[in-house]
Structure formats: C-alpha cells, structure tokens
Amino acid sequence: MSQLQYYAPGSVEDAVKALGAGGRAMSGGTDLLVQLRAGRLPPGPIVDLKNVAGTQGIRQENGGWIIGAATPAALLGEHAGLVAAWPGVVEGAGLIGSTQIQNRASLAGNLCNASPAADSVPALIAARATCIVAGPGGRREVPVQAIVTGVGKTSLGPGEFVLEIRLPPRPPRAADAYLRAIPRTEMDIAVAGAGADIVLDEAGVCQDVRVVLGAVAPTAVIVAGASAALVGFRLDEAALERLDSAAQVVCRPISDKRGTVEYRTRIAGVLARRAVAIAWERAEKRA
C-alpha cells in the first residue's frame, strides 16, 4: 500500500481531471484504506476529495440542507439544526464506526463504497436525499438510490464524484429514524438496518411514509408495501404487523459471517417496525 500515489486537488475541475485519469476517490478513507491494505482493491492513485471546494460543511438553503460530501460524520451529530430536522439521517451517519472513525468517515464515502450494509444510506434514501454529482460533463442531481447499483458498484462515470448531499425541506409533523441490528453494541457492520421517514396529518394519521432497508439485498431497498401498510392509518400493532410483513417481502439477503438469510429477513421486519414507531413518535411531537 505504501507505493500508492496520493493527490489532493483543491478544485472540482482538478478533481474531475485526476479521477478521469484513473484515480480512486477518497474522502474519509476509513473504508478505502482498509480495502487497499487487505488487497481487496487493486492499488491505484488516490484522489483525496477533502480539500475540494464545496465538499466540506453543512448549510441550510431554501429550507433544505446541503451537506458537503466529505464532511466528517461527527459534524452532522454536532449540528443542532440538522439533528433537529433529520434525526434519522444523523443517526445513520452516527453509527458509522467508532468515535475515531466518525471524525473521518463521510456520507459520500459511505455511499460510494457501495456496501449493502452502509449505515447512512437507508436513512438518506428514506429522506429522499439527492446527490450533486460533479464530472467532466458538469453537475447533475440524482437521487441517492440511483448511485449504488450493486455490491461495490456505482453509477458514477469516469471522472465523476459526489460533491454534495441534499436533504429536502421538512413539512410539519414529519420525522425520520434509523436503527440497525448488530451482535455487539458498537463497532459492527449492520446485520440489517432500517430507515424510516414519515409524515402525519393533524389528526396523527400517516400521510406519507418511506421505509428503506439495508444489508438485506445487494443495495439498500425501499419497502414497496410500506405505504399500503401505513398511509391512512394511525400507529397501532396491526399497522406495524403489516409493515413487518411488507419489509420481509423485499429482502433478498445472503447468509455470511454476519447473519443468515432467515435471521436478516426477520430482523429487517423487526427493525422496520421499530424505526417507524420511533419516527412516528417524533413526528407526533412536532405536531
């Protein structure tokens, strides 16, 4: 690994050029360096995106939020405004590794590493977050779920990288949540994860919901039946049972060292239920 070339461009243009020439994008490096070291990735020049203008920081714009793609996850948790608006997104980002990892790992890295178990991704997709992708052809805005196409694979073209993550403005009585299951209490990869975003009406009836599961398929998956299970209903055990079933239906997990097909599927239902319940309670408090 010590023979790698390292390049830290300061502008989007230079970054695009370096990546186009075969460089590998790095933001926090907490996954990339581990994979390079283990020989799971072929060695190649590293393009560090942390110094690129626009990849750092959190700001509010037109009621929505813009998060620089290389912003360390810890900064999300320290941002009171973001925590209040998108607690689930912050929860997902806050589960990426230890305190030490939190100070390096970024949303873009977690996303583009394209692990099915990435903790920040289900909540981002549930939140209908988008990415600003910079590349040789300029900038384009794409939904987060369009980035990852398979295990370790993204839709990013040569020279492209994620510059920003954007979160939409919040309607009243809306809230999100993210939960995962791991064997320990910390320092693990999700065996399954569930992000939920919910909007209630004034009567506490579900108006809109999106539930997204992680680690139960090659990419994060949207629970297609969540709306049918929950929209138009109040929070009760029957609604959660319907959601549990709907969640299990979309699971296509594998059995590996972290969990079995059966366990992942069942646990996805449990987590979906629990995440929705938390998001629901949060949304009610915002009424």
């Binding site: 299951a181 064997p183 065996v191 969990g259 079995t260 059966e262 366990y263 069942r266 646990i267």
Partner: peptide, 8 residues
C-alpha cells in the same frame, strides 16, 4: 450465543 442463534 450470538443474536442469530438465539433468535433461531
């Protein structure tokens, strides 16, 4: 006695 085995 890991979670998958206990649940199973």
């Amino acid at each position: 006695l890991s979670p998958p085995k206990v649940r199973a």
